[in-house]
Nucleic acid binder design. Structure first.
Lengths: 228, 228
DNA sequence: CGCTTAATTGAACGCGATCAAACTATGTGG
DNA sequence: CCACATAGTTTGATCGCGTTCAATTAAGCG
């Protein structure tokens, strides 16, 4: 099983944090384990601290009127969530649920804040980490607002992390991807098929997607629809 | 005319910054003046630094395929923009334009970064400032994704800063508000009228909007449509 | 005033949502 | 091992909100 040190070491948000500060973080961290489908916290609860995912997958989502959900973020190993609420000291603005069996390191809110107040390099590291997160959010907004369904899927595929063989591995459930892109699974499925039929991508084993024509896919992401 | 000190003192982002750090910021700042309609910077340019608005109004927007624009933020006196790019050290992710004659204080990027590296309280203050900005962005996302046109307008009015007499002053051009809410000005106009006809709000002089029925408006923001 | 730019109103269209049904995959117990 | 159950995906048909196109009215500003 992973230790807190291994989990934190693999976390992007802390890459800029020097060794000494890192040890302090490792010392305060405790492990948190979640079953598949388990809720980690709900919107408007007090923030327990910063969660760092070591293994598994977490979806962070907002719930709107009539129970409609929107996935803000799908967090995998190396990612963090609830950092913003922990930093700002407010209630968590969204809910989090373990999509698979998940292991996290939790940096408890009060200790973490104390560390920030005393540790300047840590503070700096968090600042650049946060600014990356803002960049990501602006990208998300851009997606929802300026792109159509095909454009969003194309952009998602181009931005996604690739496996060793250059394919994109979709999260276990496509519906979560769809929600992340603010699409219904129906529209996602249909549009996905259009991209396959147009020869821009192809589907392999186990939800692995091959990008056949990257340039054409890129033009789709910029708003040029593929013919037929 | 406003001095840099007056501008910075009135800025929310720096409220948590102690006096000593504040003076350092004031010392590095220079004034930047923009005519109505003048571009301040364009997407993907190098970040000049942190802009603090002292007077006037700036719209920060993204441009998508086909020239479609989306207003990320309307910045008035006391607000800042380009902070994120300045912190993270990357290119500005959006364009900025002075909507009216505008006076800003500019904290030049290299000096500002240096100050951050040396000044821990400043760093802390910026962290909580940034986390507020993230909160705002998540709110925007929530808006676009989970609310319909009426809900977005209602929510916007409820969240907006009030004048002394409790009214909401819309930015000079309604189209910018519309774009901010990801609506066309046509839809904005129509939906606005529906809210007036339903007796939830009323229009005063000079783009001032009175909120007549706050509770009912709040329920609209939560997705309950006003009858007829 | 007349000229320009913004806001409003009307009519028709289209993208993506919704409802519904068939199909597929993955288990589970007899 | 197969019948059945459960959950997810795909495909089809229809609907509605917001967009788009077009025309009119209102507002700024020389």
């Amino acid at each position: 099983m992973l230790s807190v040190i291994e989990i934190l070491a693999d976390c992007r948000l802390f890459t800029a944090v020097p060794a000494k500060s890192f040890q302090r973080l490792a010392a305060m961290a405790r492990l948190a384990k979640f079953r598949k489908g388990q809720m980690i916290f709900r919107e408007n609860e007090d923030c327990p601290g910063v969660y760092v995912v070591g293994k598994g997958m977490v979806r962070v989502f907002k719930t709107g009127a009539g129970g409609k959900e929107h996935v803000l973020h799908i967090v995998e190993a190396g990612g963090t969530f609830a950092e913003v609420a922990a930093l700002g000291g407010f209630k968590v603005p969204a809910s989090a649920e373990a999509v698979e069996a998940t292991l996290c390191a939790l940096l408890p809110q009060p200790l973490f804040r104390k560390a920030l107040e005393e540790d300047h390099p840590l503070c700096l590291g968090m600042l650049s980490g946060l600014s990356l997160w803002v960049k990501h959010l602006v990208g998300l907004l851009e997606d929802v607002v300026l792109r159509d369904a095909a454009g969003r899927i194309a952009n998602y595929l181009l931005d996604a992390r690739r496996t060793a063989d250059g394919a994109v591995a979709l999260p276990s459930l496509k519906r979560y991807v769809a929600s992340h892109l603010n699409l219904t699974s129906e529209t996602f499925s249909r549009t996905f098929r259009r991209l396959i039929d147009a020869g821009l991508i192809s589907i392999g084993k186990k939800n692995h997607v091959l990008i056949v024509a990257p340039e054409r896919l890129r033009s789709v992401a910029q708003g040029i629809l593929p013919k037929v």
